[in-house]
Design a binder for these strands. Structure first.
Lengths: 338, 338
DNA sequence: TTGAAAGCGCTAACAC
DNA sequence: GTGTTAGCGCTTTCAA
């Protein structure tokens, strides 16, 4: 059996409450008593039972992170950032994978095991704006992503429109006029695809470049295969273009691959930019220009906001927070260094 | 306040123990009573408090997975597989990132919060064989990876030697004789690098191909940048070779990139194979041949063994389990399909 | 400054 | 079949 407060108290010759006081750094403990208790703790190798503490105190020191899948690099890097940010505050992270399915996402919200943690950082993919009212749970929630904006949760999101506008402007700045888009979603207004398309159009309009729908590749999921497929189609249709804006890095890499197979030089013939600033964009050939959406900032902000909400559930009204972004220009738009 | 067993019992007009019986599917409950209780549960929206259950029953339904970093694709895919396997058994997964540092790895083993879970799946990087005795905790451990073989924990590992031998044989089979190695660790015997080098040498020897140390690139960490660097050096040294075995996919991709920049055709001039079968190997240009080390099997086996050990801590002697592997031949060794 | 008592919500023995 | 009793190990409240 593991040693308990009682065992420590017995060895130290004090009441078990005093031991508790020492462990929790309560002020009213005489130094000599404290020392005696600490010696006993060390002697017995005592470790507090966090489950019991959690039951009594009502909070566990754990939070849940719900993401579609860790095998998708974007979510792996997000999870990494969230775990690091949580760790810095002494929190552990429990991960639920939802596959991005609506039912599974709802299930996670309702699951009793969510209550094993003090709060939820939730990155939905299946749920949409119409489900906003369903995004509630027995713990505070911080919402991530672009699927739902009208919920009653705190929401941390990247600047999709502005980021996409900046990416497009970057392509215009290097003299490109016919910019193909890979990753649009038919009819979507909000959601990453809708917002990024909006940013793209805004940039064109601001520079007086006409919008041409034949340059826009619509598709379902943002898998690399779809990026490749879309680029195949664009090439086959014989559409002329001198740049590609992939709505995420994965799509951009799929597109790059097809362009290279087709003998197009990047960026000489076609410049390519992505979105997300995945680690791997630093290592592709050529390295991929992209938009850094502020992932670390997203993670740290989410943790901060969640902790505040856990502390004061009836605190300020739900906040809508946008992180800062930046365009990262690499070889796929600038060419190789001389 | 959340509703408790008592509230449900009161509404249903039974004792709270009966409610507990219903929830835990105990047999001795009359159907009518059961129905009444279930109605009360539904009416009140009762959800069991898992923390209390956990305190009382001594197990939490959570396990901990400790890995270096999720931003490394190998560990992201491993974590994905472990979470999915755990989910299938009704377990949640708590993730600790260690950065692969020895101190942090020891800290995780000793941390009281490990006890919030029922067991640990541990993939160390900083700890080594000499630390085997330190790999103990207050919960059962299943060890992953190639750092420690002599601990007293169950150990699930891939067939490194055999996999590397098979990869090398694949290169020999397609007629390559001078196979460069990227990722060796100076003086290492066990550990992924040591084992894979052994497999490489065994394959050469079996075919009567002389081993040439000038073909072997030694390095520190297996980052893509190091793969690129190693390949630069090999090219600069003017060593002749017609194939490259990257000790993981990341190294192989770094190497591929440098080869392509140098104008070498893959696989016509140089064939390339990696190790790990990361998702992204399907999408590189060319697609990367690699060794599938059986990641899903590793995850499922680890969960299965851990659950057994949780159930019967003094069960069978610690097991050493190897998963099945396979060589996945893609364009980087076979060339493009006609 | 320290101690005693109560109880978080649940499960496991055992009695009825 | 159902209820009673006793804690799991801890924090909290209040008294000494």
């Amino acid at each position: 059996m593991a040693t308990t407060l009682h065992d420590v108290a017995q060895v130290a010759g004090v009441s078990f409450k005093t031991v508790s006081n020492v462990i929790n750094d309560h002020p009213n403990v005489r130094p000599t008593t404290r020392a005696r208790v600490q010696a006993a703790i060390a002697e017995l190798g005592y470790r507090p039972n966090l489950t019991a503490r959690s039951l009594r105190s009502g909070h566990s020191g754990a939070i849940t992170l719900a993401v579609p899948q860790l095998r998708l690099p974007y979510f792996a890097e997000l999870a990494d950032a969230v775990i690091s940010a949580a760790e810095a505050h002494g929190l552990v992270v429990l991960i639920e994978q939802t596959s991005g399915g609506r039912d599974r996402e709802l299930e996670v919200l309702k699951s009793p095991r969510l209550k094993m943690s003090d709060g939820l950082i939730f990155s939905p993919l299946g749920l949409g704006e119409e489900d906003a009212a369903l995004v509630t749970a027995e713990v505070p929630i911080v919402l991530l992503g672009e699927r739902i904006f009208s919920s009653s949760c705190d929401h941390v999101t990247m600047q999709n429109i502005e980021g996409a506008r900046a990416a497009t402007e970057h392509l215009l700045d290097i003299g490109r006029k016919r910019i193909a888009v890979v990753g649009a979603h038919e009819g979507e207004v909000i959601g990453s695809a809708g917002l990024r398309l909006k940013g793209y159009r805004e940039a064109l309009e601001a520079r007086g470049v006409p919008y041409d729908d034949s340059l826009v590749a619509y598709m379902g999921e943002w898998h690399r295969a779809n990026g490749a497929l879309a680029m195949h189609e664009l090439l086959e249709r014989g559409v002329e273009f001198d740049a590609v804006f992939g709505f995420n890095d994965t799509l951009a890499q799929g597109a790059m691959r097809v362009l290279q197979e087709a003998g197009r030089r990047i960026p000489d013939d076609i410049a390519v930019i992505g979105f997300d600033d995945l680690d791997e964009t630093r290592y592709s050939l050529p390295t991929l220009s992209t938009v850094d959406p502020g992932r670390t900032e997203i993670a740290e902000t989410a943790i901060k906001v969640l902790m505040e909400r856990i502390k004061t559930p009836d605190g300020p009204a739900p906040r809508e927070i946008e992180t800062t972004f930046s365009v990262v220009a690499r070889e796929s738009t600038l060419g190789t260094a001389p």
